[in-house]
Design a protein around this nucleic acid. Sequence first.
DNA 1: GAAAAAGGTTAACCCGGTCAATAATTTGTC
DNA 2: GACAAATTATTGACCGGGTTAACCTTTTTC
Lengths: 199, 199
Amino acid sequence: MTGLRARKKQQTHDALSEAAIKLFLERGFDEVSVTDIATAANVSKPTLFKYFPTKQDLVLHRFADHQHEAARVVAASSAPSASPVEALRDHFLAGLDRHDPVTGLNDDPAVLAFYELVFTTPALESRLTRFVAADEEALAVALGGHLRAAVTAACLISVNQVLSRRNWQVMTSGMAADVYHPTAYAEAITAYKALAAGL
Amino acid sequence: MTGLRARKKQQTHDALSEAAIKLFLERGFDEVSVTDIATAANVSKPTLFKYFPTKQDLVLHRFADHQHEAARVVAASSAPSASPVEALRDHFLAGLDRHDPVTGLNDDPAVLAFYELVFTTPALESRLTRFVAADEEALAVALGGHLRAAVTAACLISVNQVLSRRNWQVMTSGMAADVYHPTAYAEAITAYKALAAGL
DNA sequence: GAAAAAGGTTAACCCGGTCAATAATTTGTC
DNA sequence: GACAAATTATTGACCGGGTTAACCTTTTTC
């Protein structure tokens, strides 16, 4: 049963999310009230909060797919001989190749505007950081849970974050993703190598 | 001029902070309203917000002294021959020796209760994380600002965080700080060594 | 087609945080 | 010691995020 009800639910969900992001991009996160969004989606305020627990989640639910990704990557590492740092490095490099937005290497104006919104709004940045912390925790568990695992997880997540930020900053300065791709690729390799070989 | 005014200001500041922490420890952060704190300190709500920009800062202002500490440590590293990772490792080890609360190795009930409050309240943890991020940024700048510096800074701050958390968790389980000190010391050394030598 | 279950609406409320106007104090000066 | 000026606190109102409860509508299910 696909359910008529389920479809309507999906519909309002999308209407809310799209209305929210449209308004946020136009006016800025803090200049749009949740009431504005609710009325724009023809819904009442309590209903909005039944779909999204907080105002921030209207934006950040897009990152839900990537939750615990790092932990999944090392868990699914088909070759157990490969070290987790290699697995995550390769995963990041593959992301660069396909210009995955999470690597920061994406010059689509819509993507750039969205990331600018997230990174320059403290409330959003802050909540996103908590997602990253959850990722780190999951990775630490996947690596065994002991202290060394926690250290490794923290460093791996950190280098990923640093690289993504760097790429995004270069994109905001106007460079094309295709042009910067080789440099980003080389930088990622050296960064992960520094991690594996020692600082 | 010590200023009579300045003294009164300090007095209200302390009264607010102490009333807040007392109430928070009794009832929990979310179960105390800022109005409660303001009335407990014989002050009005807008006045409270002139002393502390947010409710969280009533608790976290105690960390203000440690802001940008990592950056200061490497900047003040008297021996320029020593690598920044050694400088920060030694600084952390020294903190362990004096049972500095920021290392997590402190079994004073008041300190434990305070950290429990901070780490188990999402709003506080989140804001504290932002302070840590600012530390990391400052350290990255102090290390030169380039990509390698950013990676190094991120990893150094991360390992510090992991070690502190670990120590704090052991303390909450009831072990005495004196008893755990040697283990904490050894773990810190191996963790920093892993960083320097490669994961 | 009716009962029941799910979801939406309205309206009121709480809390964190801000603002504008007013009142109280401290300070520097005579 | 008193006075004008500048700080600072107070009050009361307000805004926006988020929750709750009572009521109503719609979809499902039998």
